[in-house]
Design a protein around this nucleic acid. Structure first.
Length: 570
RNA sequence: UGGGAUGUAGCCAAGCGGUAAGGCAUCGCCCUUUGGAGGCGACACGCGAAGGUUCGAAUCCUUCCAUCCCAGCCA
């Protein structure tokens, strides 16, 4: 093979799989045959909320890496806190991961599956004199922990004999003690500059019903004492998490080393942030609970289910995840990139249809009364195989109110008195007069003439028509509900607030507007989940919650890119 | 001098001692029966700053600056 060919191949390869620091690590591991070339990642959500687009980035990363290196990915629910976790959440998480296009096959696990083993490991640590039962209250533990700059103090219970620890821990498990009365702690270093190493709590007493283990346990392991061990049990090779766990890595390593168990490598990357939205489960939960939005899957929510209902496709989200990249630099990605990704995807697949959001009636004065014609529309110019359909035309039509201006500015090439415009796939019309409301002066109707020679929108005389607008026959138009969405937050970074305010003060009061719009007849029977482009307006998706048979409700996924809006704004 | 991390364009992000990829956004032009889509082009004399090493530095060294994370019996 020539050098030239080699070079091209290498470059193609690079384009397909953008490099990132995690791949660098894996490549090195592959080179040294670290796990016999085996790659096993995992996606470990806590079932305490719905997945959002930040999780999608992690899902795409974990499943994507495994796929690329011929490995596998486990879905593991990190369910060590029964107070916050619910079965509803595990169901939604499974649905969302599948919908995104990933398959964990039979590798569905729960940290709670390992409670027995984790308990045994706790006993092992006690026997090694590396763990002890502590009777300090939560408050006292905090006081003993010291501060960021000062070392902590050892617990008075730190040197309890092994036998006493064993006995107490067994009785904790049996339920002899009330919540919060005792904990099991690791014996590490109260003077460590890393607070996570200052005798972290391993187990706490929680008489709470667990969504899977019920009342079998009343002591539950903390994240730090469950996560790495779960990774280890599953023989995860690369345990990818977000930056805030960087400080936990020494602890993660300490447990694996001390327990002498399989030692996965924890790797941290920067979580996703997107402008004009919040991406934390705590905040999303608050938005739901305080009813700032309808539900977790409200189309304004950045949740996977919200985006799905809004009309986003899994492919668009996957492309987005790839485009934002993976690094350790904290960042705030422009919402415009996400929107670009849906448009890019929907442009190729969505059928074009006519809808008029804000109708203005037009009477074509020289069109025969009572006459109707069927006009042939191209379903998708991006894909001729999608064919054509027939749409009725008549003397009275609706056009978009914004497509007419009495006193048009320069470069406005839509309708105005004396000007011509093309009705998409129909006729060229010229506005000859307007009818105004005698009281308000508002234009309520346009009187136009059509050119019978321009059927289909063609101009046999070769005359150039600048503007093409969408329209609907008054008689045939259907009126349906359309929901227009705007950003849920008014600020690029909703978390940036003045003294005394919270991100909730940045909520956009106009993030949802519900209107009745005119649509072409075929849309009456549109089914939930179906996606369309309303020509010149945007992409719309039939809502899965509010639609009824023959009464679909449309959600605007995203507007079309609007060059005119930019010109008009100048 | 608590500890841990990060600074490359408006926003992301490659780059791994050989002279700044790519995407989004933006701005031009072309094309167009969607002011959509598409095509072409422009867009860092510069890599947080200052010194140093080197024939050569975004890459190595030193110092400084900025930002983020950590004091849950949350994950």
């Amino acid at each position: 093979m020539s050098d030239e060919a080699n070079k091209t191949t290498a470059e193609d390869e690079k384009l397909k799989t953008p490099s990132n620091f995690i791949k660098d690590i894996i490549n090195e591991d592959m080179r040294t045959n670290k796990h016999d070339g085996r790659i096993n990642t995992r996606f470990p959500p806590e079932p305490n909320g719905y997945l959002h687009i930040g999780h999608a980035k992690s899902i795409c990363l974990n499943f994507g890496l495994a796929k690329e290196y011929n490995g596998v990915t486990n879905l593991r629910f990190d369910d060590t806190n029964p107070c916050k976790e619910e079965t509803e959440y595990v169901e939604s998480i499974k649905e969302d991961v599948s919908w995104l296009g990933f398959d964990w096959q039979d590798r569905e696990f729960f940290a709670s599956d390992y409670f027995g083993q984790i308990y045994e490991w706790a006993i092992k640590l006690i026997k090694m004199e590396k763990a002890y039962v502590c009777d300090l209250t939560a408050d006292e533990i905090r006081q003993h922990r010291g501060t960021l700059k000062e070392p902590g103090m050892e617990s008075p219970y730190r040197y309890r004999p092994v036998e006493e620890n064993l006995d107490l821990f067994a009785r904790m498990k049996k339920g002899e003690f009330p919540d919060g009365s005792r904990t099991l702690r690791a014996k590490i270093d109260m003077a460590s500059p890393n607070l996570n190493m200052r005798d972290p709590v391993l187990y706490r007493i929680l008489h709470a019903e667990h969504h899977r283990t019920g009342n079998e346990w009343c002591i539950y392991p903390m994240y730090d004492f469950a996560h790495g061990q779960s990774d280890s049990i599953e023989r995860i090779t690369h345990s990818i998490c977000t930056l805030e766990f960087e400080d936990h890595r020494p602890l993660y390593d300490w447990f694996c080393d001390t327990l002498e168990i399989f030692h996965p490598q924890q790797i941290e990357f920067a979580r996703l942030n997107i402008t004009y939205t919040v991406l934390s489960k705590r905040r999303l939960l608050q938005l739901v609970q305080e009813e700032h939005v309808e539900s977790w899957d409200d189309p304004r929510m950045p949740t996977i289910s919200g985006l799905r209902r809004r009309g986003y496709t899994a492919e668009a989200i996957r492309n987005f995840a790839e485009r934002v990249g993976v690094s350790k630099a904290e960042s705030m990605v422009d919402l415009a990139l996400l929107e670009f990704c849906v448009r890019e995807n929907l442009n190729k697949t969505a059928h074009r249809v006519m809808a008029v959001l804000n109708p203005l009636k037009v009477t074509i004065v020289n069109y025969p009364d009572g006459q109707e014609e069927m006009m042939e529309f191209v379903n998708n110019p991006e894909n001729p195989d999608d064919g054509t359909r027939l749409v009725p035309f008549a003397k009275e039509i609706y056009i978009e109110r914004t497509d007419f201006m009495e006193d048009p500015p320069k470069k406005f090439y839509r309708l105005s008195i004396g000007r011509e415009v093309r009705l998409r796939w129909a006729y060229v019309i010229k506005c000859v007069d307007v009818v105004k409301d005698p009281n308000t002066g508002e234009v309520i109707e346009l009187l136009c003439e059509y050119d019978p020679l321009t059927k289909g929108g063609n101009t046999p005389d070769g005359r150039r028509i600048q503007g093409t607008i969408h329209w609907l026959s008054v008689k045939h138009a259907q009126e349906l509900e359309v929901r227009l969405y705007d950003n849920l937050f008014m600020k690029e970074n909703p978390n940036e607030v003045e003294e005394g305010k919270t991100y909730l003060d940045n909520i956009n009061p106009d993030s949802l507007s519900i209107i009745r719009a005119k649509v072409e007849p075929s849309l009456r029977s549109a089914k939930p989940g179906e996606k369309y482009q309303f020509e010149r307006l945007g992409y719309f998706c039939v809502d899965s919650k509010h639609s009824k048979p023959n009464e679909p409700v449309f959600n605007r996924t995203v507007t079309l890119r609007d060059t005119w809006a930019k010109i008009a704004a100048k």
